[in-house]
Computed example of a mutant assay.
Amino acid sequence: MFESEALFDLPQDPADTTRFSDLAQLPLAELMAPDWASALQGVDGRLRSVLAFLAGEEAAGHQILPPPSNVLRAFRQPLADVKVLIVGQDPYPTPGHAVGLSFSVDARTRPLPRSLVNIYRELESDLGIPPRVHGDLSAWTEQGVLLLNRVLTVRAGSAGSHRGKGWEDITTAAVTAVAGRRTADGSRLPLVAVLWGKEAENVRPLLAGAPAVCSPHPSPLSASRGFFGSKPFSRVNQLLREQGARDVTWDLPPSA
Rank of each mutant, 00 (worst) to 15 (best):
A6L: 13
L7G: 12
F8Y: 07
F8R: 03
D9R: 14
P14L: 04
P14G: 04
A15H: 15
T17Q: 15
R19K: 12
S21V: 14
D22N: 12
L26Q: 15
E30I: 02
L31M: 03
L31W: 03
A37C: 12
A39H: 09
A39N: 08
Q41M: 06
G42Q: 05
G42E: 04
V43W: 00
V43K: 01
D44P: 00
G45T: 08
G45S: 07
L51A: 05
L51Y: 04
F53G: 06
L54S: 05
E57G: 09
E58P: 01
A60D: 03
G61Q: 03
H62P: 04
Q63E: 08
I64Q: 02
L65K: 01
P67G: 03
P67A: 06
S69G: 11
L72H: 03
R73L: 14
R73K: 12
A74E: 10
F75P: 02
Q77G: 09
P78S: 02
A80G: 11
A80L: 01
V82K: 10
V84R: 05
V87E: 04
Q89G: 08
Q89M: 12
D90L: 01
P93Q: 06
P95R: 11
P95C: 05
D106R: 01
D106E: 02
L112S: 08
L112E: 06
L116I: 13
L116A: 05
L116Y: 07
N118R: 15
E122Q: 08
L123M: 14
D126K: 10
L127I: 10
G128F: 15
G128P: 14
I129W: 11
D136S: 02
T141G: 11
V145A: 14
V145H: 08
V145R: 09
L147D: 05
L147G: 04
L148T: 03
N149P: 03
R150Y: 03
V151P: 00
V151H: 00
T153E: 07
V154K: 06
R155N: 10
R155E: 09
G157S: 10
A159S: 15
A159M: 11
S161Q: 00
S161G: 01
H162P: 07
R163K: 05
R163P: 01
G164F: 02
G164H: 01
G164C: 02
D169Q: 10
T172H: 00
T172R: 04
T172I: 01
V175E: 00
V175S: 00
A179F: 07
A179P: 05
R182M: 10
T183R: 13
A184G: 09
V194Y: 05
W196L: 15
G197V: 11
K198A: 15
A200P: 01
A200L: 08
E201V: 14
V203K: 07
P205I: 14
P205S: 09
L207K: 03
P211C: 02
S215F: 09
S215W: 07
S215Y: 08
P216G: 14
P218C: 15
S219N: 09
S219L: 09
P220M: 06
S222M: 13
A223D: 07
A223T: 10
R225W: 06
G226W: 09
F227A: 13
P232N: 11
P232W: 13
S234L: 07
R235W: 08
V236W: 11
N237V: 07
E242Q: 15
G244D: 14
G244V: 12
A245H: 14
R246L: 13
D251V: 13
L252T: 08
P253F: 11
P253R: 08
P254I: 04
